[in-house]
Amino acid sequence: MKHLFELFIMFFKIGLFTFGGGYAMIYQIKEIIVEKKKWITEEELLEIITIAESTPGPIAINMATYIGYKQKKVLGSVFSTLGVVLPSFIIIFIISLFIEEFMSFKIVKYAFVGINVGVSFLIIKTGFSMLKKIEKKIIPISVFLLIFLLLIIFEIFTIKFSSIIFILFGGIIGIIYYSLINRNEVNN
């Protein structure tokens, strides 16, 4: 019980001090969970990152669930995940109560003129650094260009379309393309 509570507290701290999304928290996990608490080794951390990257959902949740399970089975993962989610939940819930009044201040409106531009910069920056990491082969690049083009066309003609279809499409192309490549390599 004491250990469950400790898992909760540690992940609550991590959730509370993780600004700037998933990768920022890896550093915190390393500091608190690997170096201080020694609940997992550095190799295990790397393994968890790989798993987190290839499964859906926020990395923070993936990490908390996995480390919690390694420590105290299913109950452990429940407590860790609850811990990592709770700070955001409380903070955002409080913000949601006051945001309308807050947004009606002129100075806040002005600030958000800037913030919206700043957010677009951050998103584009992330997009470009991910673009650099795409395999420089015909199929991955074509998939990227095709989806990008379709998104622009759908936006111009205001066609509603779920991106989930695009994601599944990419995945299926991936399965076909990479297994064909593997087969060729085996044959050669």
Partner: peptide
């Protein structure tokens, strides 16, 4: 392979979201 195939789609989605904003 599924995950690898999804990656270019995600990049397109993110870039598009940033550019439209």
């Amino acid at each position: 392979n599924f995950i690898k195939g999804v990656r270019p789609v995600i990049v397109a989605l993110i870039l598009f979201a940033g550019i439209t904003l």
